[in-house]
């Protein structure tokens, strides 16, 4: 198996850019970036994808797997087209996140950790996103922060992401 049979040239180029940030003998520093890039491309991280990254960065496969399981934003199983991760930690809860979370669950008809039957949405409970002042906050597909999510803003977001 070669890396290029698993990941696109564009992804590999981005991984190369990440690798270049670190000393030449410390390629593995780019593993988090590489997994993120791979997840962006594939939607989730299969064993094959992780194996490929291990090979590409000259790491033991199990070391890649360690990393992929340690950081919560890596998905090792397929997720919905849109992954919503809402912070329910105390500061956010005090500012309406509990209400927002309940609204989301009811609206999507799923619990935390579940995916809607049509595969459109996955709902996750997040820990502190570092944006408590903007609560309720949620993360859309890992990369987009949606702030001050009142029920009508949630409606709009869901409409947009359908």
């Amino acid at each position: 198996m070669s890396a290029s049979s698993v990941l696109s040239a564009a992804s590999l180029a981005r991984i190369d850019q990440a690798v270049a940030k670190y000393p030449p003998d410390q390629k593995r520093s780019a593993v988090m970036a590489a997994l993120t890039i791979a997840q962006d491309e594939k939607g989730w991280l299969s064993t094959e994808t992780m194996d490929c990254i291990a090979q590409y960065l000259e790491m033991a496969p199990v070391a890649v797997y360690e990393v992929a399981t340690f950081y919560t934003m890596y998905d090792r199983k397929p997720v919905g087209k849109c992954k919503l991760a809402i912070c329910t930690n105390l500061p956010c809860a005090l500012q309406g996140a509990t209400v927002a979370a309940a609204y989301l669950k009811q609206k999507l008809g799923i619990e935390f950790g579940e995916t809607t039957a049509d595969g459109a949405f996955t709902l996750k409970e997040a820990e502190c996103l570092g944006a408590c002042g903007d609560a309720p906050v949620l993360l859309v597909n890992n990369k987009r922060m949606a702030c001050a999510m009142s029920p009508d803003k949630l409606d709009k977001l869901i409409e947009e992401m359908k």
Binding site: T47, D51, A60, P61, V62, A63, Y65, E66, T69, F70
Partner: peptide
């Protein structure tokens, strides 16, 4: 050679070999 690793974290941390190895 790193045959075993500890995956996951916190209470869910566990020792494994890479999937299928």
């Amino acid at each position: 050679i790193m045959e075993l690793g500890m995956i996951g974290r916190g209470e869910h941390a566990e020792i494994i070999a890479f999937v299928g190895k």
